[in-house]
Design a protein around this nucleic acid. Structure first.
Lengths: 238, 238
DNA sequence: AATATTTACTTGTATATACAAGATAACTTT
DNA sequence: AAAGTTATCTTGTATATACAAGTAAATATT
């Protein structure tokens, strides 16, 4: 009894074009094939092709211009997901490494958890892990992550060191972040954080708490992070 | 020679439903009329109604559920626009006031402007103003704003004290923010900022630089802000 | 009473078609 | 040569229709 998994044409068009853009075959500023050309390629009609293109436009991969065509956009870090950049044009030749301080473990939610949980979520518990990120071997960002405990086969054993959490969730479980909120403070590091980031307790750091919702109803991602922004900054595109 | 301004049916559907949601006639969790009902109301077909509904879903006004209907979402602060919240559930009974330190003036871009400008933008110059926001009469956030100098009739004379910049742009000029990026640092206040926010220079504050793109090609909004997050935090929904 | 099944509603995917309107280059007129 | 026109490309809006598939309540079966 195989899962017949109908793949829809418009989704195939999205995936195809998305991967061509991500692979760099279409570069920023390029025009995609016209709607009618795509219709011929996929043997379909404009309604279906337009469904795919408007979705790509929505995801920020292209912008559409009346009478002109679909123009490939600047690659985005995607849907408000926070990324860490060096002051000098992106990470560039800097070395970004990640250390897992706490491997993913299933546990109950902390009593004083910083966001409200719905009933099902509270009952199911969570997966917790923490990571420390370095740029050129200097610790820069400490992050604690709580994920709602839904069925994610083999998640605990996955390697979180090199790949981003979001890539793993997308590639292995087809989970994508849909929306979220974040709260931001500037604080002085406490003893714990100053030790982790190797800074004085008078050093200002960014403290951020985020809640991200995904396309999986029951799965939310909560993270609390502390960042030393002396040599770097936190960057966020939306 | 009047401008015939064809209004499109799908846009009318969007505006109608949007305003009903904003007015609270449809509340969070309510179901909108089904696609077929809307077809009858507007004497059109599902393709057109679906174009409107998918747009509303995209703007975050509704979520759509296969086999169920269109569910009205929680009102959002909108597209990654930063808002300022008190630690206790929103602003609530706190008093939020704004002081204009520098009224909007047309001027050339600063030589050391923090974002790259395109040619047309650089040539046209900018509108600059700065504001200081207080919560319960305590200064909390200082913001400098640069806007590309496109034609905004009477903009300089508008009252920026009570209404938000985004509301003014939307209501009077039909300009809406489409996307943006922001960079975040934690720093110690310099003399200028510590004076404005009435804090010591050892006090950690959030420094944020943002670039927002609008539906008007030539108009971008740049802002640089400094926030004392001791009693409040910066909040961002996306 | 508990469990399937049917039915009627909902949204999702798709085809086929038509005309409007913006963009651009080729062509014609002045 | 410059200016206006046309032709032809592009995307935008819209109608009409069909069937697939998720949801939920009514109905039939056990």
């Amino acid at each position: 009894m195989s899962k017949k998994e109908v793949i829809h044409l418009y989704k195939k068009v999205i995936e195809d074009l998305k991967s061509l853009i991500e692979k760099g075959e279409y570069k920023k500023g390029d025009l995609l094939p016209s709607e009618n050309e795509l219709c011929r390629s996929y043997d379909t009609t404009r309604v279906t092709i337009r469904q795919a293109l408007s979705s790509l436009a929505n995801m920020g991969y292209i912008t559409r211009r009346h009478g002109k065509g679909s123009i490939v956009s600047e690659p985005k870090s995607g849907l408000g997901i926070l990324s860490l950049s060096g002051v000098t044009a992106g990470i560039g030749n800097h070395k970004l490494t990640t250390t897992i301080l706490q491997k993913p473990v299933k546990q109950a939610w902390p009593d004083d958890f910083f966001y409200e949980l719905d009933e099902a979520e509270a009952e199911a518990g969570c997966i917790f892990f923490s990571r420390l990120r370095h740029i050129d071997n200097i610790p820069v960002l400490y992050e604690e992550t709580h994920i709602s405990n839904v069925d994610l086969p083999h998640f605990s054993s996955r390697n979180l060191e090199n790949k981003s959490l979001f890539k793993i969730l997308k590639e292995h479980y087809k989970i994508e972040v849909k929306e979220g909120e974040q709260k931001i403070w500037a604080i002085h590091a406490d003893k714990n954080i100053s030790g982790l980031l190797n800074i004085k307790t008078t050093h200002p750091i960014v403290h951020m708490k985020r809640r991200l919702q995904t396309n999986n109803k029951g799965l939310r991602i909560y993270s609390s992070l502390y960042c030393n922004t002396e040599e770097n900054f936190l960057q966020d595109s939306f």
